[in-house]
Design a protein around this nucleic acid. Structure first.
Length: 473
DNA sequence: ATGTCC
C-alpha cells in the first residue's frame, strides 16, 4: 500500500509553506513504496542536507528548491529599534504632524545614523518630503523619492531687467517654443534633443534599465507635470558676489524645476519593489525598505540612481541651452542643485549615505536654489554646513494646502488677482499650484536661518507649468 | 512625481 503523507506531516518535520512544500509532496508521491517512518526520515535528511540529493532521481527537484530557498534573502521581519532617537527639526510650527511621525519611524531603522526635518516638510511615502536621513551602508529607494535627481537650475544672464519688460512677447514665444510639459510627453523627430548622457554605459547595467533608454531619449529636455516649471524672472544681487563674480544689480534669469521623468520614476518603482522583497520591515516602515550598499541590488540601484540624476541634469542643460540661444543671451553664472537624491558624505567624521527627499544640500559654501511659489520670490543660497541639519535646507516653501483642498478653496478669480498683483504671466498650471497653496517662503527662510545664507533674490515674472490634467502637448 | 503593473 502506498504511503500517504500530507502538508501537516511535512510542517511537523520542519518544512515551511510555499514552493518547497509542494516539491516535497510531489517527491513523496513519486517514491516507490516505503514505510511512513522511512519516508519522513528521508525527507528530514533531504531538508537537512539538500546538496547530497542533487543527483537523486526522485529528490533532485526538492533538493534544488531547498537550496534556492536557503540562498534567498531571509524572509523574516527586520526589527525596528525601540529606543526613541532625537532628530533636528527646523520650523516645527509649519510642519504637519504626519511628517514627524514618518521621521520618527525612519529614526528607528537599524541602519539609521541621524535624521533632520526641514521647515517645508510634509507627509510622503516612507520618508517625508523635506526629510533628511543618514544611514550606514544602506540605500533606501523611497528615501530618495520617485523623481530621482529632481532639481533646480538657474542661469543668470547679461540682460538687464528692462529688456525683459520691453520684450515680453518674445520671451513668452520662446518659452513656449522650447519647453515641453505634461506626464508622458517628450519630443519627436527633428525636435528631439541630444546629449552625451544618452550614451552612458550605465544604461547597460541591466536589461530593465536598457529598456528605458528610448523613452529617456524622447523625454530629454522636457519638464513633466506636477510642480515642475520653467520661468523667466529677475534676480537681484544686493551686493557683488565674489564666488559667482557678479556685480550688484538686477539681471534677467531663467529658473527651471524638474527631474528625471519616466526614466527616474520607473527606476524608483522597480528598486523600491525589489527592496521591499529583500528587506522585510514592519508594516509602518515598509516603504523605508533598504538595500545593502554592498549587495548587487544596492549597487545596481546606486548606478541607476546616479544615471537618473545625471539625466535630470541633462534635461535642464538642454532647456537652458535652447532658451539662452533663443534670446541671444550670455550666461553670467549658473547654479544647480538636486533635492531628491542620496550622496556619500562625511557626517561627524563617518562616511554615511545621506538621503535628501525634498531637501537642498547645504554643506559649507555649497550653493543652492530654494524656490517660493509662482508669485513669491525664490532664493539663491549658500550653505552654512550645519551638521545637526545634516548639511541640508528646505527645497521650497512647502505646501500648506493639499492639491485637492487647493482646488476646492481657491477660485480662478483669486488666482488671476494674485498673478496680476505680482505682475506674473502664467502659461499652464491648475489651481493646485496657486501661490496660496504654498506656505509663506519668508517664514520658511526665517526658520532655516542657521542652515543657509541668502545670496540673491529671484522674482518670477513669466512661468510655464503643465496644464491642469497634464493634457497639453 | 509617474502614461499610476516590468
Amino acid at each position: 500500500m502506498k504511503t500517504e503523507i500530507n502538508g501537516d506531516d511535512l510542517l511537523a518535520i520542519g518544512y515551511t509553506e510555499g514552493r518547497v512544500l509542494g516539491e516535497a509532496l510531489k517527491a513523496a508521491a513519486a517514491l516507490p513504496d516505503i514505510t511512513r517512518e522511512e519516508l519522513l526520515a528521508l525527507l528530514t535528511k533531504v531538508k537537512q542536507y539538500p546538496e547530497n540529493f542533487l543527483d537523486d532521481e526522485h529528490m533532485e527537484s526538492l533538493a534544488t528548491a531547498l537550496i534556492e530557498e536557503l540562498n534567498k534573502p531571509v524572509d523574516t521581519t527586520i526589527a525596528l529599534i525601540e529606543e526613541k532617537r532625537e532628530y533636528a527639526v527646523y520650523g516645527a510650527d509649519y510642519i504637519e504632524e504626519g511628517a514627524g511621525k514618518q521621521m520618527a519611524i525612519a529614526m528607528q531603522l537599524p541602519v539609521t545614523v541621524a535624521g533632520a526635518l526641514m521647515p517645508d516638510a510634509h507627509q510622503g511615502y516612507g520618508l517625508p518630503i523635506g526629510g533628511v536621513l543618514a544611514t550606514r551602508n544602506a540605500i533606501i529607494p523611497y528615501g530618495v523619492g520617485v523623481d530621482i535627481g529632481c532639481r533646480m537650475a538657474l542661469s543668470v544672464f547679461d540682460i538687464p531687467a528692462e529688456h525683459f519688460y520691453e520684450n515680453e512677447a518674445i520671451y513668452k514665444r520662446e518659452l513656449i517654443a522650447h519647453t515641453k510639459f505634461g506626464a508622458g510627453h517628450g519630443f519627436h523627430g527633428r525636435y528631439k534633443a541630444d546629449h552625451a548622457v544618452l550614451d552612458r554605459s550605465e544604461f547597460n547595467i541591466t536589461p530593465f534599465v536598457k529598456n528605458l533608454q528610448d523613452k529617456a531619449a524622447s523625454q530629454l529636455g522636457s519638464s513633466g507635470g506636477g510642480n515642475h516649471f520653467v520661468e523667466w524672472g529677475i534676480i537681484e544681487f544686493e551686493q557683488r558676489d565674489e564666488v559667482l563674480n557678479i556685480e550688484k544689480g538686477k539681471y534677467l534669469a531663467l529658473l527651471s524645476h524638474s527631474g528625471s521623468r519616466g526614466l527616474g520614476a520607473t527606476i524608483a518603482g522597480y528598486y523600491t519593489r525589489l527592496a521591499k522583497d529583500i528587506c522585510r520591515l514592519p508594516k509602518e516602515a515598509a516603504n523605508l525598505a533598504y538595500l545593502d550598499m554592498a549587495s548587487e541590488a544596492g549597487q545596481e540601484y546606486w548606478l541607476a540612481m546616479n544615471l537618473a540624476g545625471d539625466y535630470a541634469s541633462a534635461c535642464h542643460e538642454v532647456i537652458h541651452n535652447k532658451l539662452t540661444a533663443a534670446v541671444g543671451a550670455r550666461v553670467l553664472a549658473k547654479v544647480e542643485n538636486h533635492h531628491n537624491f542620496a550622496w556619500k558624505e562625511q557626517w561627524h567624521g563617518e562616511e554615511v549615505i545621506v538621503h535628501r527627499k525634498g531637501a537642498t544640500p547645504a554643506g559649507k559654501d555649497v550653493m543652492g536654489i530654494i524656490p517660493g511659489s509662482m508669485t513669491a520670490p525664490g532664493f539663491l543660497v549658500r550653505g552654512k554646513g550645519n551638521e545637526d541639519a545634516i548639511n541640508s535646507a528646505s527645497h521650497g516653501a512647502g505646501r500648506q494646502l493639499s492639491r485637492t483642498k487647493a482646488i476646492q478653496q481657491i477660485s480662478q478669480q483669486d488666482m488671476k488677482a494674485v498673478l496680476k498683483e505680482h505682475g506674473v504671466t502664467l502659461i499652464g498650471a491648475g489651481l493646485d499650484e496657486a501661490p496660496m497653496a504654498y506656505k509663506d517662503i519668508h517664514k520658511v527662510m526665517a526658520a532655516q536661518h542657521d542652515l543657509v545664507d541668502v545670496v540673491a533674490r529671484f522674482e518670477p515674472k513669466m512661468v510655464r507649468m503643465a496644464d491642469d490634467g497634464s493634457k497639453e502637448d
